[in-house]
Amino acid sequence: MNDHWIPVGRLDDIPRQGARVVTTPAGDIALFRTLDDQVFALRDRCPHKGGPLSQGIVHGRRVACPLHDWKIELDSGLAVAPDQGCAARYPTRVEDGRVSLSLTPDTGCPNA
């Protein structure tokens, strides 16, 4: 259960196969929208050298970091092997075309 849903905008505000950023006091969070309209949120810092994942190319359930092309799994925040590392993942919810976000990460990444 998660009682702290924060509305952040409409689904249509995020481009398909793209991302938008939500700024928070604790740093940026990237909200990704896949081709099939799933929404995922990750901390906007690549586990490699901190690249802004929100700026990468979204394909399938992955995003390719714009700086050195690591691939990160959107649904887990994990780097695709053989790379290793993870970006903290935040719960999202889409209801009636509105997106809300919880600021409590649900994975225990060291860089959260």
């Binding site: 952040v8 505000d13 481009p15 939500v22």
Partner: peptide
């Protein structure tokens, strides 16, 4: 335009 602005600002 949306490419250059945050979706939401919670800061």
């Amino acid at each position: 335009k949306r490419e250059f602005t945050p979706l939401a600002n919670l800061a």
